[in-house]
Design a binder for these strands. Sequence first.
DNA 1: GTCATTTGCTGACCAACGGTCATATGATGA
DNA 2: TCATCATATGACCGTTGGTCAGCAAATGAC
Lengths: 226, 226
Amino acid sequence: MGLEERRKREKEQRRSAILNAARKLFFEKGFKYVTVDNIAKKSELSKGSIYLHFKSKEEIYTHILFSDIEKFNKKSAHLFQDNKSAAELILEFACIYFDFFLNDRELFRIMMTFMLHTEDMNLAESVNEHIIEVTNNTIKIIETILQHGIEQGEFPPDINVRQCRNAIWGFLNGIISLHLFTGKEASREERIRSTIKGSLSIFIKGLKSFRRSDEMISQNNNFQTI
Amino acid sequence: MGLEERRKREKEQRRSAILNAARKLFFEKGFKYVTVDNIAKKSELSKGSIYLHFKSKEEIYTHILFSDIEKFNKKSAHLFQDNKSAAELILEFACIYFDFFLNDRELFRIMMTFMLHTEDMNLAESVNEHIIEVTNNTIKIIETILQHGIEQGEFPPDINVRQCRNAIWGFLNGIISLHLFTGKEASREERIRSTIKGSLSIFIKGLKSFRRSDEMISQNNNFQTI
DNA sequence: GTCATTTGCTGACCAACGGTCATATGATGA
DNA sequence: TCATCATATGACCGTTGGTCAGCAAATGAC
């Protein structure tokens, strides 16, 4: 069985070499501007070999997104070690989430591209499922924090946890989208940080005083508007 | 002077023909999959003629984005006609904002693509400025609503209006990004609506009870985390 | 109306690029 | 050693955004 294992190992090594080469190039030049030829040369393989391992260029960057987000999720586990309030945890999570993309901006572009073009992408079916899964795992961290807040009595049990976790995640992505690539370079980081912190604090304050009756009133307003 | 005017008029007609043709095709097939050749044929011009009017394919779809957002902004002026609370106005704005993109999903993709790749796009300088301006006009609608809320005593004067308007806009885009192209098609619309409404209500509740002391506490927490 | 000049349009061309696959090369085992 | 199988290669292909030499049309002077 040594033969098969060696082959398997070598195949995996090649695959890693491709991903590592691609990752460097994408983050250096932007994934849109890196060609498969560039990746082939940097990984010291032929262009055709690339396609022995990946279905498409899109699949390469989706794999990179997958593994980076997976790392982020693991790293975020440390959040729960200290005994912090849920409010603190949300803000801290937001901070490390932003840092993650600030460190590799291209990764944010890749992620948003994935979200905007999910249906169009040329990926093996399993790749699609995997990326959706790890993305959901990120969102679930927020969910866990919210549940923690409910258990600790910080937030009322009335809140729609699923909805709030999506809202917080959407909010983070929206703010990052708004400021990470536009406006004066020098002030982008600080602007995102303060917007995230300031507005999440408002959201958290709203959460803390939430009553189910608030939701009902809101729905009534909706009927009147229609 | 009749000659120049006719020429000018004809040039403008050709330009409109191109934009109209492009708009139909983009929204039918997705802007990524429409070629300049397709646009040329549909507008009954040669491919080279397209480039007499627009610097690039990107500039075509940016122009479409520009004019559609401009229309949206004008249409949103009706928001202020009735005497509604700022809370109601925010929710109503959010609703029509989402409807705008629900109606033309490709437009949302174009907008997000613009935001993610602003620095990379092959546009005439003025086009870039114009699209940023109309986008800012959209954001300013939210700002006007917030100011209205402060004047009416709904929101405390302490709130950072500029930051909140960006937060709300970012939030809307983030939620739309999250759900417009992913998940079960049948439930996407409702999911976005309820997330926007539910979470904006929480945010608004937080706004209503905001005190500048809240902000200071939040900043202190930040120092402890670092 | 003719013709030189100016203006504008055309579509063949070009480079680039993702992806393919016939052919070549290397590994394996009898 | 050699037949067979597995894998790698890079020339090739179709496509696409953008270019521009050549052509067509418009204009205005005579």
